[in-house]
Amino acid sequence: MSKRKQHSPEFKAKVALEALKGEQTAAELASRFGVHPTMIHQWKRALLEGASGVFERGSRRKPEVDEAQLQALHAKIGELAVANDFLSRKLKALGRDVRRAMIEPDHPALSIGRQCGLLSIARSSFYYTPEGESDANLALMRRIDEQFLETPFYGVRQMCWHLRNEGHGVNVKRVRRLMRLMGLMPIYQKPDTSKPAKGHKTYPYLLRGLRVDRPDQVWCADITYLPMRRGFLYLVAIMDWHTRKVLAWRISNTLEARFCVEALTEAICRFGPPQIMNTDQGSQFTAFAWTDTLRRAGVRISMDGKGRCIDNIFIERLWRSLKYECVYLHAWETGSQAKAGVGRWIRFYNHQRPHTAHGGRPPAMIYWRERQPNQPSQQELRVA
C-alpha cells in the first residue's frame, strides 16, 4: 500500500508562488507538481490572503498555536463531525472540489477514508491527479471559441452539431463540459443562466434607454478565455462605453475575483471613477470585493440580464477583434508572452487602430479630447 501523500508548508508556498507568477496555466502547474488544480487555487488564495501578516506593526509574527492544543482541537472537531449528522448533511451542499480541498491527510483523529465518507466523496478521488486537458481537447476548445465569435447564439446542441458537421467526433456532454470550462454562454434567453455565486447580490440593468454621450459616464468589464499552447488563461478588461478605450486589463491563470478587482482599482486610480459600471452576473462581478470597491468609489452598479451578453455588446466586439487580430495568430508558451502580446495589441487598439464608431479615429484620441475638465499632456496621451 502506497504512503499517503502529505505536502509540507514549504511545498505549498512554492506551488502558490509559481501560480502567482502567472507564467504557467493551472493545468501545467498541476502536471508539474503532481497536485490537483483546485489545491493550487486554494494555496494561491491562502498566500495572497496571508501576505498582509508579513507587514504587521513591528514585523512581529503572531504567536504560534501550541501543537498539543491544535491536535486536541482537531480531535474535538472530529468527534463532533462523527456525532453530528446535521453537519454532514450541510457539507454535502458544498461543491465537490470544495469538499475535496477540506480533507486533511495528517488529521490526528480522522482517517482520509472517514473524512471522505463524512464529505460524501469517493476516497479514490482524493488520490487522483488530473493530467490536464489533452491536445485534442485544447484544439477543440480553440475551434469552439472561434465559432462562438461567429455565432454567439449557438448553445451546446447547436455547437455539437456544427462540430460533427466539420468531422469532429464529439458528443453533447463533451461540448457542454468544454464550453463551461471556457465560460461561454449563448445570448438567447433561458432560465437559470449566468448564475452568481450563492449569497452574492445582483443588480438591475441601468443602461436600457440611457443616452451615453461622454467619457467616464459608463464603464463595462468582462472576462474572456485565452488559448495557450498548453492550457489556457483568463483575461479581464475595463472599457469606457462611449469611446471604447480599454482603461485597464489583467491576465490570470485562475478564475477568481482578485485579478478583476486589481484591474478595476488601477482604472479608478488612473482615470477616476465612472458614474456607472456595467458587467454580467458572473461570480467575479457579484463578489463582495468587486461590488465593495465600486460602492466605496461612489459608482452605480449595473448588470446584464440573464443570458444576455448582447447587453454588454461593445466589450464582446473587443474580444472578437483581439482574438482574430492577435490571439489566434500566436501560440504563446508562457504567461509573460501572453501578457506582452496582449499589451502590445491593446496599445495599438487604443492609440493607432482606426475605430468605425469614431470615423476612423482611435479610441484614446476621442477619450482625451472629450474628457472634461482637464486636458492631458502629450506624455499622458502616450502612456494612457
Rank of each mutant, 00 (worst) to 15 (best):
M1E: 02
S8G: 06
A16H: 11
A16Q: 06
E18K: 13
F33I: 01
V35Q: 08
K44W: 09
S52V: 15
V54G: 00
F55K: 09
V65A: 03
K76D: 03
G78P: 04
D85F: 09
D85A: 10
L91K: 04
K92I: 05
L94N: 13
D97K: 15
R99Q: 08
P108N: 00
E131V: 09
E131W: 01
G132Q: 02
A136W: 07
M141R: 15
I144V: 12
F148N: 11
F153C: 13
R164W: 03
E166P: 05
G167F: 08
H168I: 01
V172S: 06
L181N: 14
M182I: 07
P186Y: 07
S194M: 04
K198T: 14
K201P: 11
P204S: 05
P204D: 00
L206H: 11
G209R: 03
W219Y: 06
C220K: 06
I223D: 11
I223G: 10
T224I: 15
T224H: 13
P227F: 02
R229G: 04
L235C: 03
R244H: 14
E256W: 13
E256P: 09
C260R: 05
I268V: 14
M277T: 05
D280L: 13
D292N: 10
D292H: 10
R295D: 00
I301D: 07
S302T: 00
S302V: 03
M303F: 01
D311M: 09
F314M: 10
Y324V: 15
A338S: 08
R347E: 03
Y349C: 04
Q352M: 05
T356F: 05
H358R: 03
Q372L: 11
Q372N: 08
Q375E: 03
P376Y: 01
P376M: 00
R382C: 00
